[in-house]
């Protein structure tokens, strides 16, 4: 769980996850990647029972997610799930995603907020759909919600997925890398909870332009970059 200044809600998110997974027969760890928060995110996460990896430098959502997945890979996890730390995802959806990926028909399973977009504001819906279209145009990956933070990774995905961008654009780049490595990408519908807090913390729609710019740059740079 990548987190930056989420002290207000992170303990609740961790507690919900712990309750949902308790007694389900899954050996699991909740890992929070604290991306140099300036509030008490680290302490709040630790006291709620999560393992915390604290970044030395602030890198962004993509960098934090990468650190978490590298930890999972190094510790030989069979599966990994990522979710937003602002409480917009339901722990039940994480569990559902894990059960779905265990059926072995996916390597990267995206929790799509747009299959049933009830509760999402029109502006956010347009922004997210627009970014999914851009992802399709640039990378040829067709998904309904390219920016979703709830993702489940198979062992194959954990072992092979690596991306280069650090900001929110990593979400689209990750899909591209998964396609390049011939991983099976699927989606399942999830419900997103939009509280006053998560709405205020979420991406500003204007940031979509930065994401598009970075993705185009990455697509061009790939021709030159080693």
């Amino acid at each position: 769980m990548p987190a930056y200044n989420e002290a207000a809600v992170i303990a609740d998110v961790i507690n919900q996850l712990r309750q949902t997974f308790r007694g389900r027969g899954y050996e699991h760890e909740i890992i929070v990647i604290d991306d140099c928060s300036i509030d008490n995110t680290c302490e709040a996460a630790k006291s709620a029972g999560a393992k915390v990896i604290r970044h030395i430098l602030n890198t962004g959502s993509g960098g934090s997610t990468a650190t978490g997945l590298i930890y999972a890979q190094k510790n030989n996890f069979d599966l990994a799930a990522t979710l937003d730390a602002d409480g917009q995802h339901l722990a039940e959806d994480v569990l559902r995603g894990i059960k779905l990926i265990q059926k072995n028909d996916s390597d990267l399973l995206i929790g799509s907020r747009l299959i049933d977009s009830q509760g999402m504001s029109k502006v956010k819906r347009i922004g997210n759909k627009g970014l999914s279209i851009i992802t399709f145009i640039l990378f040829g990956v067709k998904v309904t919600d390219s920016q979703s933070g709830l993702r489940i990774f198979s062992k194959a995905a954990l072992d092979s997925l690596k991306w280069r961008t650090h900001g929110y654009e990593f979400a689209s780049e990750m899909l591209w890398r998964a396609k390049q490595r011939k991983l099976r990408i699927n989606e399942f519908p999830i419900k997103a909870i939009y509280t006053e807090y998560s709405t205020a913390k979420g991406q500003n729609n204007w940031n979509a332009f930065n994401i598009i710019k970075s993705l185009i740059k990455r697509r061009i740079v790939e021709l030159f970059g080693e």
């Binding site: 915390v52 030395i56 890198t59 960098g63 650190t67 280069r164």
Partner: peptide, 24 residues
Amino acid sequence: LLERRFNDLHQELSIRLSKEKGDE
């Protein structure tokens, strides 16, 4: 190449330091 190495180093250091500090 330097950017990639730096990222790898940062991730590795963050994981190791957190382990040493007992955050994990």
